[in-house]
Amino acid sequence: MDVGVIVKAALDVNVLRSDPSGRISIESIPLVISEYDRNAIYEGAKICESTGGKLYIYSVLTWGPMERKLKDFENVIREALALGGEEAFTVVDKSINSSEPMYTSEILAKLISKYGSPKLILAGEASTDMTSSTLAPYLAAKLGYNVATFVKELKLGDGYVEVLRDADERLERLSVSLPAVVSVTGEINTPRLPTLIQIRRAFRKPLHKFTLADLGLSPIMSRYEDYKVVTVKRKNVIIEDESLEGVADKLIEHLIQEGVVKR
Protein backbone atom coordinates (compact mmCIF):
# COMPACT_ATOMS: atom_id res chain seq x y z
CA MET A 1 0.00 0.00 0.00
CA ASP A 2 1.25 3.47 -0.84
CA VAL A 3 1.82 5.78 2.10
CA GLY A 4 2.35 9.54 2.22
CA VAL A 5 4.33 11.41 4.84
CA ILE A 6 3.99 15.15 5.33
CA VAL A 7 7.36 16.52 6.29
CA LYS A 8 8.17 19.97 7.55
CA ALA A 9 11.34 21.96 7.05
CA ALA A 10 11.21 23.62 10.46
CA LEU A 11 13.13 26.55 11.89
CA ASP A 12 16.09 25.23 13.87
CA VAL A 13 15.17 26.07 17.46
CA ASN A 14 18.77 25.68 18.52
CA VAL A 15 19.90 28.51 16.26
CA LEU A 16 17.78 31.44 17.30
CA ARG A 17 18.63 34.79 15.76
CA SER A 18 17.15 38.13 16.72
CA ASP A 19 17.75 41.86 16.34
CA PRO A 20 18.57 44.17 19.26
CA SER A 21 14.88 44.97 19.81
CA GLY A 22 14.19 41.31 20.47
CA ARG A 23 12.44 40.61 17.19
CA ILE A 24 13.25 37.14 15.90
CA SER A 25 14.84 37.26 12.45
CA ILE A 26 13.04 34.33 10.92
CA GLU A 27 14.83 35.10 7.66
CA SER A 28 18.22 34.14 9.10
CA ILE A 29 17.30 30.98 11.02
CA PRO A 30 18.27 27.76 9.21
CA LEU A 31 15.76 25.01 8.48
CA VAL A 32 16.07 21.40 9.61
CA ILE A 33 13.76 18.42 9.37
CA SER A 34 11.07 18.62 12.06
CA GLU A 35 12.28 16.05 14.57
CA TYR A 36 9.31 13.72 14.86
CA ASP A 37 8.75 13.64 11.10
CA ARG A 38 11.66 11.20 11.02
CA ASN A 39 9.56 8.81 13.09
CA ALA A 40 6.66 9.28 10.66
CA ILE A 41 8.91 8.50 7.69
CA TYR A 42 10.33 5.39 9.34
CA GLU A 43 6.85 4.14 10.26
CA GLY A 44 5.71 4.73 6.68
CA ALA A 45 8.81 3.04 5.27
CA LYS A 46 8.11 -0.08 7.36
CA ILE A 47 4.56 -0.32 6.01
CA CYS A 48 5.74 0.17 2.43
CA GLU A 49 8.44 -2.47 2.83
CA SER A 50 6.00 -5.06 4.12
CA THR A 51 3.24 -4.31 1.62
CA GLY A 52 5.37 -3.37 -1.40
CA GLY A 53 3.98 0.14 -1.60
CA LYS A 54 5.54 3.44 -2.48
CA LEU A 55 6.42 6.11 0.07
CA TYR A 56 5.63 9.67 -0.98
CA ILE A 57 6.96 12.76 0.76
CA TYR A 58 4.83 15.93 0.72
CA SER A 59 6.08 19.26 1.93
CA VAL A 60 5.35 22.99 1.76
CA LEU A 61 8.10 25.52 2.35
CA THR A 62 6.41 27.81 4.85
CA TRP A 63 9.24 30.11 5.90
CA GLY A 64 10.59 32.90 3.74
CA PRO A 65 12.28 34.57 2.08
CA MET A 66 12.15 31.76 -0.42
CA GLU A 67 15.55 32.41 -1.99
CA ARG A 68 17.32 32.20 1.33
CA LYS A 69 15.48 29.12 2.51
CA LEU A 70 15.49 27.04 -0.65
CA LYS A 71 18.81 25.28 -0.08
CA ASP A 72 17.93 24.19 3.48
CA PHE A 73 14.50 23.11 2.26
CA GLU A 74 15.98 20.89 -0.44
CA ASN A 75 18.37 19.37 2.09
CA VAL A 76 15.44 18.49 4.33
CA ILE A 77 13.61 16.83 1.46
CA ARG A 78 16.74 14.91 0.43
CA GLU A 79 17.05 13.72 4.02
CA ALA A 80 13.42 12.55 3.93
CA LEU A 81 14.18 10.66 0.71
CA ALA A 82 17.32 9.14 2.24
CA LEU A 83 15.23 8.01 5.21
CA GLY A 84 12.94 6.01 2.95
CA GLY A 85 10.86 8.32 0.77
CA GLU A 86 10.66 7.32 -2.91
CA GLU A 87 9.38 10.49 -4.50
CA ALA A 88 8.80 13.99 -3.15
CA PHE A 89 6.10 16.49 -4.08
CA THR A 90 6.73 19.95 -2.73
CA VAL A 91 5.37 23.47 -2.93
CA VAL A 92 7.71 26.42 -2.96
CA ASP A 93 6.23 29.86 -3.54
CA LYS A 94 7.40 33.41 -2.88
CA SER A 95 4.07 34.42 -1.43
CA ILE A 96 4.23 31.90 1.42
CA ASN A 97 6.08 33.31 4.41
CA SER A 98 4.44 32.07 7.54
CA SER A 99 3.46 28.75 8.98
CA GLU A 100 -0.29 28.78 9.36
CA PRO A 101 -2.06 25.43 9.51
CA MET A 102 -5.07 26.82 7.67
CA TYR A 103 -3.03 27.67 4.58
CA THR A 104 -0.55 24.83 4.82
CA SER A 105 -3.35 22.26 4.97
CA GLU A 106 -5.12 23.72 2.01
CA ILE A 107 -1.95 23.51 -0.07
CA LEU A 108 -1.09 20.01 1.16
CA ALA A 109 -4.62 18.78 0.47
CA LYS A 110 -4.36 19.99 -3.14
CA LEU A 111 -0.90 18.50 -3.56
CA ILE A 112 -1.85 15.12 -2.10
CA SER A 113 -5.05 14.69 -4.07
CA LYS A 114 -3.30 15.65 -7.27
CA TYR A 115 -0.20 13.52 -6.82
CA GLY A 116 -0.49 10.01 -5.47
CA SER A 117 -3.42 10.42 -3.09
CA PRO A 118 -2.28 7.62 -0.76
CA LYS A 119 -4.93 6.27 1.59
CA LEU A 120 -2.68 6.67 4.60
CA ILE A 121 -0.91 9.93 5.39
CA LEU A 122 1.51 10.09 8.32
CA ALA A 123 2.68 13.19 10.19
CA GLY A 124 4.65 14.08 13.30
CA GLU A 125 2.71 14.71 16.54
CA ALA A 126 3.94 18.31 16.52
CA SER A 127 6.40 20.36 14.51
CA THR A 128 9.54 21.52 16.27
CA ASP A 129 9.00 25.19 15.46
CA MET A 130 5.22 25.70 15.71
CA THR A 131 4.31 22.72 17.90
CA SER A 132 0.67 23.29 17.15
CA SER A 133 -0.35 19.67 16.51
CA THR A 134 -3.17 20.93 14.35
CA LEU A 135 -1.92 20.10 10.91
CA ALA A 136 -2.79 16.40 10.79
CA PRO A 137 -6.45 16.77 11.88
CA TYR A 138 -6.96 19.98 9.90
CA LEU A 139 -5.61 18.31 6.77
CA ALA A 140 -7.70 15.18 7.38
CA ALA A 141 -10.86 17.27 7.40
CA LYS A 142 -9.83 19.03 4.19
CA LEU A 143 -9.16 15.70 2.48
CA GLY A 144 -12.29 14.06 3.88
CA TYR A 145 -10.11 11.45 5.66
CA ASN A 146 -10.44 10.06 9.16
CA VAL A 147 -7.86 11.07 11.72
CA ALA A 148 -5.95 9.80 14.75
CA THR A 149 -3.27 11.84 16.53
CA PHE A 150 -0.47 11.21 19.07
CA VAL A 151 -0.22 7.59 17.97
CA LYS A 152 2.31 5.39 19.79
CA GLU A 153 1.59 2.12 17.96
CA LEU A 154 0.32 1.56 14.46
CA LYS A 155 -0.81 -1.64 12.78
CA LEU A 156 -2.13 -1.89 9.27
CA GLY A 157 -5.27 -3.98 8.75
CA ASP A 158 -7.43 -4.57 5.72
CA GLY A 159 -8.93 -1.17 4.94
CA TYR A 160 -8.17 0.22 8.40
CA VAL A 161 -5.37 0.97 10.82
CA GLU A 162 -5.37 -0.07 14.43
CA VAL A 163 -3.69 2.53 16.59
CA LEU A 164 -2.79 3.06 20.22
CA ARG A 165 -3.16 6.75 20.86
CA ASP A 166 -2.15 8.93 23.77
CA ALA A 167 -5.16 10.65 25.33
CA ASP A 168 -3.28 12.34 28.22
CA GLU A 169 -4.77 10.46 31.16
CA ARG A 170 -5.12 7.16 29.38
CA LEU A 171 -4.29 5.30 26.19
CA GLU A 172 -6.95 4.44 23.65
CA ARG A 173 -6.88 1.66 21.11
CA LEU A 174 -8.84 2.69 18.04
CA SER A 175 -9.74 1.19 14.74
CA VAL A 176 -9.61 3.89 12.09
CA SER A 177 -10.96 3.21 8.62
CA LEU A 178 -8.84 4.30 5.68
CA PRO A 179 -8.35 6.78 4.19
CA ALA A 180 -6.83 8.40 7.25
CA VAL A 181 -4.25 10.88 8.47
CA VAL A 182 -2.28 9.67 11.49
CA SER A 183 0.19 11.69 13.54
CA VAL A 184 2.82 9.73 15.45
CA THR A 185 4.70 10.43 18.68
CA GLY A 186 8.47 10.55 18.94
CA GLU A 187 8.40 7.24 20.77
CA ILE A 188 6.61 5.12 18.15
CA ASN A 189 9.94 3.85 16.80
CA THR A 190 13.65 4.58 16.69
CA PRO A 191 14.38 5.90 13.21
CA ARG A 192 17.43 4.36 11.61
CA LEU A 193 20.16 6.63 10.37
CA PRO A 194 20.42 6.61 6.59
CA THR A 195 23.46 4.82 5.21
CA LEU A 196 25.88 6.51 2.84
CA ILE A 197 24.38 4.59 -0.06
CA GLN A 198 20.87 5.73 0.89
CA ILE A 199 22.05 9.31 1.06
CA ARG A 200 23.64 9.06 -2.36
CA ARG A 201 20.58 7.34 -3.82
CA ALA A 202 18.38 10.11 -2.46
CA PHE A 203 19.92 12.52 -4.96
CA ARG A 204 18.63 10.45 -7.84
CA LYS A 205 15.07 10.23 -6.51
CA PRO A 206 12.48 12.56 -8.07
CA LEU A 207 11.90 15.82 -6.20
CA HIS A 208 9.06 17.83 -7.73
CA LYS A 209 8.58 21.50 -7.02
CA PHE A 210 5.33 23.31 -7.68
CA THR A 211 4.16 26.88 -7.20
CA LEU A 212 0.72 27.83 -5.93
CA ALA A 213 -0.26 28.74 -9.48
CA ASP A 214 0.72 25.24 -10.64
CA LEU A 215 -1.86 23.88 -8.22
CA GLY A 216 -4.48 26.42 -9.19
CA LEU A 217 -4.23 28.19 -5.82
CA SER A 218 -4.08 31.94 -5.38
CA PRO A 219 -1.19 33.65 -3.61
CA ILE A 220 -1.39 33.63 0.14
CA MET A 221 -2.01 36.90 1.91
CA SER A 222 1.16 37.57 3.78
CA ARG A 223 -0.04 37.97 7.36
CA TYR A 224 2.73 39.82 9.10
CA GLU A 225 3.28 38.48 12.56
CA ASP A 226 5.43 39.86 15.28
CA TYR A 227 7.84 37.26 16.57
CA LYS A 228 9.63 38.10 19.80
CA VAL A 229 12.32 36.27 21.69
CA VAL A 230 11.41 35.02 25.13
CA THR A 231 14.25 36.18 27.32
CA VAL A 232 14.90 34.81 30.76
CA LYS A 233 17.89 36.26 32.53
CA ARG A 234 20.05 33.66 34.26
CA LYS A 235 23.28 34.16 36.18
CA ASN A 236 25.30 31.56 34.23
CA VAL A 237 27.83 31.01 37.03
CA ILE A 238 29.99 27.92 36.59
CA ILE A 239 31.12 26.75 40.00
CA GLU A 240 34.75 25.71 40.12
CA ASP A 241 37.06 24.42 42.80
CA GLU A 242 40.02 22.06 43.17
CA SER A 243 37.85 19.38 44.71
CA LEU A 244 34.29 18.17 44.25
CA GLU A 245 33.75 18.81 47.96
CA GLY A 246 34.70 22.43 47.36
CA VAL A 247 32.29 22.68 44.42
CA ALA A 248 29.51 21.15 46.49
CA ASP A 249 30.11 23.53 49.41
CA LYS A 250 30.13 26.58 47.15
CA LEU A 251 26.92 25.47 45.45
CA ILE A 252 25.25 24.95 48.82
CA GLU A 253 26.28 28.44 49.97
CA HIS A 254 24.85 29.98 46.77
CA LEU A 255 21.56 28.16 47.29
CA ILE A 256 21.32 29.27 50.89
CA GLN A 257 22.11 32.85 49.91
CA GLU A 258 19.45 32.77 47.21
CA GLY A 259 17.04 31.75 49.93
CA VAL A 260 15.93 28.65 48.03
CA VAL A 261 17.48 26.17 50.47
CA LYS A 262 16.94 26.64 54.19
CA ARG A 263 19.51 25.57 56.67
Binding site: T131, S133, T134, P137, Y138, A141, R165
Partner: peptide
Protein backbone atom coordinates in the same frame (compact mmCIF):
# COMPACT_ATOMS: atom_id res chain seq x y z
CA UNK B 1 -4.69 15.88 23.13
CA UNK B 2 -8.27 14.83 22.36
CA UNK B 3 -9.54 18.40 22.25
CA UNK B 4 -6.73 19.58 19.95
CA UNK B 5 -7.62 16.79 17.55
CA UNK B 6 -11.38 17.35 17.56
CA UNK B 7 -11.16 21.13 17.42
CA UNK B 8 -8.59 21.13 14.60
CA UNK B 9 -10.66 18.62 12.65
CA UNK B 10 -13.71 20.82 13.04
CA UNK B 11 -11.77 23.97 12.09
CA UNK B 12 -10.48 22.13 9.03
CA UNK B 13 -13.96 21.09 7.97
CA UNK B 14 -15.10 24.71 8.19
CA UNK B 15 -11.91 26.35 6.96
CA UNK B 16 -11.64 28.59 9.98
CA UNK B 17 -8.32 29.63 11.55
CA UNK B 18 -7.08 27.82 14.62
CA UNK B 19 -4.45 28.89 17.11
CA UNK B 20 -3.33 26.41 19.74
CA UNK B 21 -1.92 26.67 23.25
Amino acid sequence: KKCIEALSFYAGSRGIPIVTE
